[in-house]
């Protein structure tokens, strides 16, 4: 990381673990729960958020001195929404297949409070380069949790990863299914996403007791 000073590098590495947007800052939960039944959807969502966060943070940071504070929330929301809609339209025109995969997430990206949260907490008060790094860092921290949750839910729920039958065929009884293993359909339902995130928090805070909350 020769390009980045130590302080700047922290902007990327912090959200990755000790200041993770999902497990510590409690931001962006809705989407983390809604789309993680499948690993592929998790990855697509993580990449889209990475893009929107990076660009959005830069735009807001550039505008930070001219936004009237009274209507800053409206302005922020409109910036995100405009970005997302333009990307959606461009994809629809030039990468139609990809846009169909993404289509379902557009609402979730706009309402993703992680984006608003970082605009408000960081981009409004910091320079462009640092805001960009902050956006990327938080998006990565968010994406990592998404991918972990998606991995376990798809593996235990459908016995597949990215659509490949890694555990054998449940109907023909091959692979581990021959030993009597069954898919846990419950993993696919949204409540299990909450519980999986709960377990991730548990593991994370066991490893780093400094994060444990006061009683």
């Amino acid at each position: 990381m020769g390009l980045l000073s130590k302080k700047d590098a922290k902007l990327i590495t912090d959200p990755f673990a000790d200041n993770n947007p999902i497990t510590i800052q409690v931001l962006g939960i809705c989407s983390a729960l809604a789309i993680t039944a499948e690993l592929k959807a998790s990855i697509v969502m993580a990449i889209s958020v990475l893009f929107v966060m990076g660009v959005g943070n830069v735009v807001i940071s550039l505008m930070r001195n001219i936004i009237p504070s009274k209507i800053r929330i409206i302005v922020q929301l409109i910036v995100v929404a405009t970005l997302v809609i333009i990307v959606d339209q461009v994809l629809k025109a030039f990468a139609y297949e990809l846009s169909k995969t993404l289509g379902a997430f557009i609402g979730l990206i706009i309402t993703n409070c992680i984006i608003m949260g970082r605009f408000e907490a960081f981009a409004l008060a910091n320079g462009t380069w640092r805001s960009f790094l902050d956006g990327i860092g938080n998006a990565i921290g968010y994406g990592v949790i998404l991918i972990i949750v998606g991995f376990f839910r798809e593996l235990l729920g459908s016995g597949t990863l990215l659509g490949f039958k890694v555990l054998g065929d449940p109907i023909e009884k091959t692979g581990v299914y021959a030993l009597g293993y069954e898919n846990n359909g419950f993993m696919l339902l949204a409540p299990m996403a909450l519980i999986v995130v709960g377990i991730i928090i548990w593991v994370q805070r066991t490893k780093n007791p400094a994060l444990v909350e006061e009683q």
Partner: peptide
């Protein structure tokens, strides 16, 4: 509550259980 689960962690799990109930 086990210390690492205190606060946020247990809230997630309780919400998950409540959601199962609401199903």
């Amino acid at each position: 509550v086990p210390a690492p689960l205190r606060g946020l962690g247990i809230t997630f799990i309780v919400t998950g259980l409540m959601a199962i109930g609401f199903m």
